[in-house]
Design a protein around this nucleic acid. Structure first.
Lengths: 197, 197
DNA sequence: GTCTATAATAGGATAGAC
DNA sequence: GTCTATCCTATTATAGAC
C-alpha cells in the first residue's frame, strides 16, 4: 500500500501550492503562467500537471482552499472566551488573525474570481457562511448578556447583525490593498468603539 | 472644427463601454475576449481598437471609470440633509444607491484587478478616498451633535471611524455576490442599529 | 514521478481596403 | 472610422524518454 507515496505526493502538492500562492500574490492569478510557476518552483511543467491534472484552475482552487482553511481553523481556535466579547472586539480578534497571515492581495483576487467561477464561489461562500455563523454566535452570546441594548431575542439579534459586523473583515482587507495610507492598527483599535458596546 | 465628430466619437465609445460592462459582468473580464465584444456589439475589431487604442485594458479602465463615476456623483448628491445622520443611516443611504445601480459582479472583479494593476488601483483608490472622506465628514457632523457618545474632538472621531463604517459597502457588495441567501433589505435595515447611535 | 521538447490553440493586435 | 482578413505572440497542455 502506498503510504509513503501518499505522504510524498501531498508534500509535493503542498510545495507547489506554496509557490503558487506566492506568485499569485505577487503578480496576480491571471498574469501568472505555468512557466512562471516552473521557474519559481524549480520543477517542470510535467511535475505540475502530474500533481494538478486540472492545470492552473485546479491550482488556484487548491491555493484558495489552503488560505481559506487557515481562516476557518483560526476561527475555531478563537472560540470560548469566558466573558462575551462585544461586536467590535469579536471583529478585532478575527482581523488580527487575518492581518498576521500575510496572504497579501490574494483575497481580493479570489473574490473577483469567485464572482465569475462557480467552483471558486462555492469555496468562498462556504467560508463566508462559516464566518457569518461564528460571528452570529458570538453576537448572540453578547446580546444575551446585554438585553438592554439588544432586545428580547439574542439569537435573532445576532443573526441580524452578523452580516454587517462581518463586513469589517473584507473592508479591512480591501482598504489595506487599495490605500497606501491605510492605518491597520487604527482600524482595529476603532472597531470596539464604532459598533454598539 | 470637429464638433460633430467629437460627439459621434463619444457616443461610439459610450456604446462600446456599455457592451463591455455587460459582458464583463456576465462572463468576467478575463474570460471576455475582444471577439466576444465584437459579437455582442455588432461592431468590428477595427472599430474597437480605433476607439480604444489601448485595447482590452483601456476598455476595462474606461468601464471602471464609468461605474465608479456614478458612485461619486451619487455621493455628492446625497449631501446636505438638515439633521445629521447617524453612522448607520449614512451607510444605509450610500448602500441603497449601490444597490439601485446593478453593476452585478463587476465591482469585486474590479477590486481583484486593482490589487494587481497599478493603473486600476489608482482609479479605485481615488474613489475609496473620496468615499472615506465623505463618510468622515458626515460622521464628524453627527459627532459634533453627540459629544457624549463621541468625545471632545468630532473631527478626529469622524476620521478614526470612517474606515470601519465605510467597510459596510464592500461587505454588502461581496456578500450579495457570494451568498445565495443574502438578504439585502435586512442588511440595510440592520445598519442603523449596529453602529453607535 | 519528473524531465525536455513540442504540439496546439487562443486571443490580442494590426494592415490595408473601403 | 470601420471592416475583413490575418499575423504573431503567449500560454496551456501533452508526448515520450528516463
Amino acid at each position: 500500500m502506498p503510504k509513503v507515496t501518499d505522504e510524498y505526493r501531498n508534500a509535493r502538492r503542498g510545495e507547489i501550492i506554496e509557490v503558487a500562492i506566492s506568485q499569485f500574490a505577487e503578480h496576480g492569478y491571471a498574469r501568472t503562467s505555468i512557466a512562471d510557476l516552473v521557474t519559481a518552483s524549480g520543477l517542470s511543467a510535467g511535475a505540475i500537471y502530474g500533481n494538478f491534472p486540472g492545470g492552473k484552475q485546479e491550482l488556484f482552487v487548491a491555493a484558495a482552499s489552503r488560505i481559506l482553511k487557515s481562516r476557518r481553523d483560526e476561527l475555531a481556535a478563537g472560540a470560548g472566551a469566558d466573558r462575551p466579547l462585544s461586536p467590535g472586539e469579536v471583529m478585532a480578534t478575527l482581523i488580527r488573525g487575518i492581518r498576521a497571515e500575510n496572504v497579501g492581495s490574494v483575497l481580493p483576487q479570489l473574490w473577483g474570481e469567485a464572482s465569475i467561477d462557480a467552483e471558486i464561489r462555492t469555496l468562498v461562500s462556504a467560508v463566508f457562511r462559516d464566518l457569518r455563523q461564528t460571528v452570529a454566535d458570538r453576537l448572540t452570546e453578547w446580546a444575551a448578556a446585554h438585553p438592554d441594548r439588544t432586545g428580547a431575542d439574542p439569537s435573532a439579534w445576532g443573526a441580524r447583525m452578523a452580516p454587517v459586523v462581518l463586513s469589517a473583515a473584507p473592508g479591512f482587507v480591501l482598504q489595506r490593498a487599495m490605500l497606501d495610507d491605510f492605518d491597520e492598527v487604527a482600524y482595529i483599535d476603532a472597531l470596539p468603539d464604532i459598533f454598539v458596546h
